[in-house]
Structures are given as C-alpha cells and as structure tokens.
Write a protein that binds this DNA or RNA. Sequence first.
DNA 1: CTGTGAACAGAAAACGTTTACTGCATCCAT
DNA 2: ATGGATGCAGTAAACGTTTTCTGTTCACAG
Lengths: 376, 376
Amino acid sequence: MTENNGNSERPTARAGRPGQRKRADAQHGAKERPSTIRDVARKAGVSVATVSRTLAGNYPVSDEARARVMAAVASLHYVVNVHAKALSGQVAGPVALVIKDITGPSLAHVAAGVEQEAADRGRLSLVCATHDDATREDALVQLMREQHAAAVLLVGGVVPDAAYERRTIGYAKALDAAGSRLVLVGRPAPAPDLPVTVVDYDNRGGAFQATSHLLASGHRRVLFLGGETGLSSGDERRAGYRDALRAHGAGQAEELDTEGTYTRASGYARTRDAVRAGLDFTAVFAASDMVALGALAALREAGLDVPGDVSVVGFDDVPFATDLTPSLTTVRVPYEELGRTAVRLALERERSLGGEEHVVLGTQLVIRQSVRRVDW
Amino acid sequence: MTENNGNSERPTARAGRPGQRKRADAQHGAKERPSTIRDVARKAGVSVATVSRTLAGNYPVSDEARARVMAAVASLHYVVNVHAKALSGQVAGPVALVIKDITGPSLAHVAAGVEQEAADRGRLSLVCATHDDATREDALVQLMREQHAAAVLLVGGVVPDAAYERRTIGYAKALDAAGSRLVLVGRPAPAPDLPVTVVDYDNRGGAFQATSHLLASGHRRVLFLGGETGLSSGDERRAGYRDALRAHGAGQAEELDTEGTYTRASGYARTRDAVRAGLDFTAVFAASDMVALGALAALREAGLDVPGDVSVVGFDDVPFATDLTPSLTTVRVPYEELGRTAVRLALERERSLGGEEHVVLGTQLVIRQSVRRVDW
DNA sequence: CTGTGAACAGAAAACGTTTACTGCATCCAT
DNA sequence: ATGGATGCAGTAAACGTTTTCTGTTCACAG
C-alpha cells in the first residue's frame, strides 16, 4: 500500500495548474462569469481586503478608497458569493421545514409562521415536502445536514412506532453532530435525553374542551369521529374526548367512539353510516374540521338540521370554518405560533449545548353556531 | 496612493498564519466542529483526493481504499460541506419563491407546485414572503442574487404601474447578470426583450367562460364583484366579463359592474349593498372564491336562496368550494401547474441564453350547484 | 528482461471570501 | 528630536471541496 506522506512542509513546487473553469470570453454570447471581489479590487485600484472591509463596514477605510470601491461595485454589479462567505465562516445556516405537504390549511400556517420567524431573524427558509414517504424524509434530513441548516423542523402527525423512534433518534444525533438542531413539531419525542426540541400543542386538552362544551350544553350522546388509532394526535384527541365523558359522568358508548382518517370523506362516510344504523346521538365531535365538513354534508343529506337536530364541533379552526353554514364551533390550534416557536427555540439555543426542550402550546375553543343548547 | 502589485508569481513566503477558527478541544462541552474530508482521509489513511473520488464515484478507487473510506465516513459522521462543494463549482443553485403570503389557498398550491418540480429536478426551494412590501421584495431579490439561485419566482397580483416596471426591469437585469433567471408568475412582463420568463393564466378567458355560463343559463343581469382596478388580474377578469356581455348581446349595466378587493369582506359588503339598493340582478359573478363566499353570506342574510333566487359563480376553485352550501360553480385555475411550469421553464433554459419566454395556461369552468338555469 | 499501458493514489491549484498580521505614514505628547 | 499611538492599506493563510497533473505499481506482451 502506498504510504501517505505526512510531511506537509515541502517547498511549493510549481505543479500543474488544474483550474477546472476557464474564464469565458464575454464577447462570445455565453453567460459572463459573475464578477468577484478581485475584479472589484482591480477596478478600484485597491486590495481585496479593502473591498471586503468597505462592504462589511467593520474596519476603518478612507473616504477616498470607499468611494472608488463603491463605484467599482456598482459598475461591475458585484454581489458577494455566499458560498465563499459561508466557507470563511460568516453565514448563518437556513431553517429547513420538512413537511408532508404545504397545501393543507393548517400546515400552510405552520409554514408561514416558520418563514416569518426565520425572516425576522435574518434566516432563509427551505421547504421540502415528504408526501409521507419515510425514505424521502431520510434523504431530506441528510441533505439538510449538508446544507448546514441551523434547524430542521419535522412537522406533522406520525405513528409513534419503533421504526419512528429509531429513525428520529438517528436524525437527532446526526443533526446534532453536524451542528443542526432537530425540532419536532406536533410529534412526540422518541426518547428522553436526545438533542431535540419538541413543540406540540394540547391535543388532549383541546378535545376535552370541545367535548366538555357539548356536554355542558346538555348533550349526552356525542358521536366521536376520531382520527387513526396509532397516530399520536389521533390518540390524544380520543383521550381528551374520553376524559370529558368521564369528568361529566356521561356514559361511554363504544359504538359512538369511532376511528378513521382525517379526511372529509371519512367524516362523511362515518356520519352517514351512523345515521343509517339508527345510532342515538345529538352531537358530533369531529377530530378535525375536514372531518366535520364531511359530517355536515352527511347530516344535511339525511335531512338533519345543524344545530337544530344535531350539534357539531370540529378541531383545527381552518380559515373557512367561519364560512360554513352554520359556522363551525371548533378548537383553535395556534399553527402559526407553532411554527414561530419552533424556529425561535431552535435559533435561541443555536450555539449552546444539546439536551432536550419541550414546549406545549394551548388550544382554544371558538364558539360559533354549530352547537345548540338542549334542555331536558 | 499605494500601488496594487499585479505580480502574482511571487514565492510563497511563510507569512503569519491567521486562521480565524481554532479547533475546540471536543472534551470541553462546546459543540464539536463537524469533521471534514481531511479528517476522513487521515482516519482512513488515504489522501483527500481518494476520499472525494470514493464519495463521488466518478473515478476508479480500489476496494480496499473504498472500504476504509466508507468506514471512516461512517465513524466520523462525515457529510460533505455544500459551501465548499459549491465553491468548487459542483452545486446547482436553489429555486427561490418570492411570494406575498403562503397561506392563501391558491398561493399555497403554487408553492406546492414549485416545490415538487424543484425537488423532481434535485433542487431545493427557498420561500420568502414579502407581505406586499416592495422594499422587502428588493431586498429579497438582492439576497437571491447572493444565494446564486437558479431561478427567482415572483408570484402574484401586482399593479403594473411605472414603479413596477422600473423595479422589475432592474430585477431582470441584475438577476441575469448573476446567472439567475427571473420568472414572473401571474404578473405581466414590464417590457419586451427582457431576460425573463413569464407564466400566467388566462384571467380574461376564465372570466369570459364564467360569465358566458351564466348568460347561457338564461341570466341577463349579472352582478360583477370585480377586483381592484389597476391590479392586472382584476382588469383582465373585468375585461372577460364585459367580453361575454358583449358577445351574448346582454346590456352592460354600469351599476352591476363593481370593484373592490379580493376579500370575503368586500364581497359581503358589495352584495349586501346591492341588495339593499334594490338592484335588479339574478346572478353574481365574483372575481374570486373568497369574494363569492362573502356574496353567499350576504345573500343568505337577505333571505335569498342560492341558486333558487340568485345564481353565483366564483373564480379560483379553492379546495373548499366543493364544501359550501350550495357547492360553488367556479373557474379552476391550475395553480400547481403554474408553479411547476415556472420552475420547469426556468431550469430548462438554465445554461442557455437570455431572452423572453411567455406561457399562458388555460382555465376551466367547474360546474357545481350554485347556478340555476332560468327560462323566460 | 524490457517496454507499454492500465489502474490507482497523492500533491496541490483553484473556487471567492474574511481577517490576523505586518507595515507605513502621520500626529501628538514628551 | 524621539517614542508611541493611531489610522489605513496590503499580504496571504484558512475555510473544505473537486479535479488536473504527476507519479507509482503491476500485469503482460514482445
């Protein structure tokens, strides 16, 4: 095997001059190479150091030199190259938002919060969609490591199984080693003592509020249109629903405690089936506004009035909740705040030590017109 | 004045060794510096060139060396530094989406299209919100120049006045000089022969379709809830409305041709006022679904049934259009396709010459339940 | 044996910045 | 006059890669 010569102090022999790019002739029609700090220095008749200092403004430069530099910068349309700047240590990494899909009404608000907070702190935001593909998520985390992202935000519901734990632990360690902070938004922490920030909201409490509102309005039999069992937010909301039933001494009817997906179609189908099966209920608590939308449609088709015959509460407070007929009583989730908080926490501890950090944001019941008080 | 010495061939004198960062002691609690290709080379007992070649896989490397490199990479958690890679010319720039606000239902879909197409082509997407602030837009374009973005997408409605033209021309030239491509999405090109790509959709044709549908359904007096005069999309849609009236030989009643903002509130107020003023109309064409939403609410409050008493058509086909009561007949705009096309066009001509390029995407009338045929 | 070519490894030059040193006037206090 | 600040400018190292040269080794044909 060839020995790797450890001697780094050899004379600078005049070796070949590789230089992978050649300066195009500018006349030739091909794109001109953008000008560099050296071009500016040459044109202004000063050294590159002076140009750099003029632009950074962190070191005294004579008015004469400054003026000539500025003129050269303007005439050459010079802009600093971030990569070079970053390499010499002067650029803070971007914030990366890794999300299932940006178009969902709630996720879009998380994204907006992230972008705002990042921009307020002078950072750029990268957004990447996973479309629920774990392989893609792996690839994106790896990519963000290369990008030296200051924070990597993994957003959105997840089934907290063994595979999730394993992957997330790997992410946390890998990102930490690369100087990035992993932030889980609306996801559970897979293990204690991981270098990770967790920002979540109170699914269980929100569901408790919603269900309690129905019970306090006199309803006794509340159809629950829950999300997938196994999905963290789904389980939490279900738990909140059951907490409320228990707390108010209402019976827990198994046939009213349904599960499905967070889609309009699922809400529609389950409500339709419940009505057809002749189930006895005077209220519906849908685990998301989309599900509530489906429920409203199914109830309307069945000739039932909302809130006249059946009261409905949703979860999320999507923007159009106020525009439905009737406007939807629902649980407001501070999505934008969620995004802002995630970025804030990650960047605040950017240069400090690892370790866990956990924040849970509260939810708020928004009372509109889809619930009627019933008296017995 | 000091002469800038042009002679670059002087012997490499051993000058002071600045070195702005020192390698932390790793034990010390402070973040470890991420490992570099040199660390890997040292650990694997090979040269940096071999490590680079192993990872790039574009040059023969012995199995023995490859194995040792891979082992070192794994044990050091090495990831390549993009900035260094970019500096040596190996990284393609990101796609930058500069947008008023991501949370709007239509803009979110544009963003999703952009992200998808960019990801399909192995690019990252930066998103930045301007919140309609021209100063911020200027700053962002400048920033994207520094970032060496491959494409900068400026999205969304705009008042095409002199200031807009001046700024956009400046953007186009500056970005072109930096090797980036400016793409205007849903905005008019400010001048011919600019290095710019324009992707728009057929506002006028869509409005024509919508209005024609109402006229063909027997309606004669159509209240138009237009957008701001001066805003490009607003003027276009208004023109389409008038085209249709002319084409069908329907009279143009000035009091039915209103203008306002693209908001629910504006739609609500204008419809309420029209009803109160006793205006004679049997149909409403709202220049956006949000406006239609307001109109529906105002009509309902006035005790008018949709589509029984008044028919309504919107514009945009936002996701919830199908969930309204009645579901909304509207003009579908291919927002996602808009985003995809913008990225595709920009990247396809990435290395080719400047010059203009213009694409207009079609719209499609989606017939649902908010329009009733009337016979006389 | 010796010449030839293939396969593989290493040294070092870019890439474009920032900034630690060094150096040179100039000015002011002694 | 002299010594020390002070203000400003230039030189070149370092940041972490990629890739061009320049070997060196080795197999094999002549």
